[in-house]
Amino acid sequence: MRILIVEDEPDLLRTLAQALREEGHAVDEAEDGEEGLFKAVETDYDAVVLDLMLPVMDGFEVLRRLREKRATPVLVLTARGRVSDRVRGLDLGADDYLPKPFDLRELCARLRALCRRSAGETRSEIVLGQVRLDMRSRTLTRDGEPVTLTAREYALVEHLGLHHGKVVTRTELYEHLFDENESSLSNLLDVHVSNIRKKLGHDFITTRRGHGYCIEA
């Protein structure tokens, strides 16, 4: 999943980004509201982590303007634990709310839930034929046997799995799997797909020439 973090505290921004990258997400960073809004509007993120107290443009304003353009799931992060702030944030279109200080595991779980919900899935397990995807432990089993995937491979399967039955374009996959700092070599995606096919069978992912990839199960 590709996630944008908008946070003005550099140490916290760095920590969050590292934590989410280690979870296998592609992470973009923004240090102020303006930059955050620009990135959030430009790119189709799976989720945005937004601090409310931001320089230049505050979180509420970012949220309001983002909602005029996009329905990206937004998790609001704030040290202000007041009910009125929470209500205002949620009413402006935030999808979830996490008060500081928080637990990293909770943040990750909430982000997963946000992405699941936005893809129309409510359980944290996706069944694709013989393949089972456990989004909590980020593991994959085939006929009950665990299959080892790299983080990137898993993210690819997860994204296609969340949208199974639909064709996902290469552009969309690039957008959701690689962050802004990675040079998106066009054949990188093909390499990952071919590796996954080796592990899970050739028919697991179908290629629609000129369109993209699809898991049909």
Partner: peptide, 22 residues
């Protein structure tokens, strides 16, 4: 005051949790 204190606490907590993850 609570807000100002929460931010460094958050930094410390998440940094430590991340470090201990592996």
């Amino acid at each position: 005051a609570a807000h100002e204190l929460r931010t460094p606490v958050t930094v410390m907590l998440s940094q430590i949790q991340l470090a201990l993850n592996r």
